[in-house]
Write a protein that binds this DNA or RNA. Structure first.
Lengths: 200, 200, 200, 200
DNA sequence: TATGAATGAGCTTTCATTCAT
DNA sequence: AATGAATGAAAGCTCATTCAT
């Protein structure tokens, strides 16, 4: 069998991108394979040729994008920065992604919610990586007294992800006029104020 | 037409309660009217008789429970407490409800997420009341310097609701072992530390 | 819940009868539920309301009709006749049924073939009853020397059913001009000639 | 165009053999071209290259194998034996084939059944040859008084084929424990008993 | 010849909603 | 008010067939 042609890979990507757009616009349930195929400009059956099922397609979108996020988070966590700066960088990355690829971010956040409903969000491999990395990060910060008093490092990852989701969805979907800078500084306030770097 | 008999009201309530259980267990999409009717022990058609449609039924669940929450929040906001204490009471109420009526809370939070997807969460009347009340509360606190440095009062309600949703869903559905006390103190750390009241 | 109204039973029967006609005409694979619904003059979904699935519908046709045949065979076997007469009566019943209800017979025979392909023909409850009853009948005949020399009683039921199927399908579907009397006497020749009753 | 290379012929045969195995295992409807291609170890499209369509492929299997059987039957009929011996040889050939090439036999018998359903079995060229040859054979036997009393020569071919199909399918698919010798002597008992040759 | 990606018609099944009783 | 049979639109998935390379 010949190696996957560039054409083939391009087709796959086109379908994946189309899927992101349609899932973001309509949500999982209301999305029809026919919509994705049309949006991608390919035949109906080709979606199944590449992805096997609607759920598998959504899983792929979810996996690939959370994997990217997990890598970013892990990279930042491994870098040589203060805990506060690490969190700031992660937040900036998330907020910037939301501005640059709103549909992509929307899908993975909303699908995160859908999985939460099924008890399959925090157990998802890449999500779990993010949570674990953040937890370690916050535990280190706690040990150095860098957390706000009362903030519990084991709870913070879930709070952070929830706050991020809520805020981004509010901005993207509900068109709530929240400023990225305000969002960043608000969430950052969960970390200790002692290291009050100039926010802007 | 005669006034609603007690029987009639009881039937309606039975259906509503059954709907909460089924929606919580299966989610909106996977819930079938037949499931609700069976769970309530009533005839299929009666669900339509009382609620008109599946969506209307879910709307009713959503409305009634957010209305209750909105009233609590408004009541607390109007009470004579410090901002920190008000938020603490609201948090306690939310966490206690999640323990006492997990299915009810699960439905309104997850359905909140579904509506967010459609841009109809923060614009929902009762949700908007909660947000507005919290915003005013945080704005007052900000004016009195009671917020953590960097925390923006307009952003805080969305952050708070998102964190709450995330945390409660994690506890209820993902069975993440988070302690209510830890959750409370973590979220409370968003408020200024100056007023470090004894947490318990 | 009210007992099944006569209407309801009639509807069910109408669908069943329509199914027999369509299955006989087109075979299992080529039969679409839409055809059956149309033939029965009912809505599409009603077929599912009563039978759950296409296969379950076909199973019902198969079961009910083989059950009837099994009862006839068992009744005849229990009657006070010579083995030869018993077989004659069974043959007559089968051939007469094929003339009176050709579609019904066609369906159960052809579906018999389809199940044979899956190794589920002779193990089907009612088919197995027929085979077992015939086997006992032939074993008794063998003990009394009533079988043709060489005929093995354990093999005869399968031979008999195969011959019957072949002959009836040839008559019904392939329109091979075989006479019932000739068919009967030919198959009967498997039994001993000693009891040469006047065949016509 | 160059004459078919040995390679080409070998490929064709490989596909045909694979088709026999898959058709035998799954039946006509459940067989997918993809299965056959995989079983044959060739590319998907090559099946179409050689056979044009799924049905044409099955037709080829059916044709080639019934042609072989027809030739055997005709050869036997033309040979210098008693009618009883001719039938015995045909039976032996069929039963031996079923043991040696169970999949091949299974396909042509079950496909025979499928065609019967469509009224296209007895009219198939090679099947018709077999039936005609057997009919002539039985008519000759009848004229010489070699048939069991009551056996009608025009009916016997169909009875014989049906019995054979039933018995072989029972052995191959339903795993009914029938002995070849018992089957042979039972079916042979349709011929006159006068010439009771030693069965073995 | 050979490959396998691409196409799209067709089918089963589900289930919200309606309605006669 | 109450019942549940009846309706039919909708959508996921399969797979024979085509075709560009």
């Amino acid at each position: 069998m010949p190696d996957p042609s560039p054409d083939s890979a391009a087709r796959r990507t086109r379908i994946l991108d189309a899927a992101v757009r349609v899932f973001a616009t309509r949500g999982h349930t209301a999305t029809r394979i026919a919509d994705i195929a049309q949006e991608a400009g390919v035949a109906y059956g080709l979606v199944y040729h590449y992805f096997g099922s609607k759920d598998a397609l959504l899983d792929t979108v979810f996996d690939e994008n959370w994997a990217t996020f997990a890598e970013v988070v892990e990279g930042v966590a491994a870098s040589d920065r203060s805990a506060r700066d690490k969190v700031r960088v992660v937040l900036d990355y998330a907020l910037a992604s939301a501005e640059t690829y709103p549909e992509r971010v929307q899908v993975i956040l909303l699908e995160y919610g859908r999985r939460a409903r099924l008890g399959q969000a925090l157990t998802h491999a890449h999500v779990a990586r993010v949570v674990a990395t953040l937890r370690a990060l916050f535990q280190g910060a706690a040990a150095r007294g860098e957390l706000a008093p009362g903030a519990v490092p084991e709870v913070l990852p879930v709070v952070l992800l929830g706050a991020l989701q809520s805020v981004i969805v509010a901005m993207l979907v509900d068109r709530e006029p929240l400023e990225a800078a305000a969002v960043r500084s608000t969430i950052l306030s969960l970390l200790s104020v002692s290291d009050a770097s100039p926010e802007e």
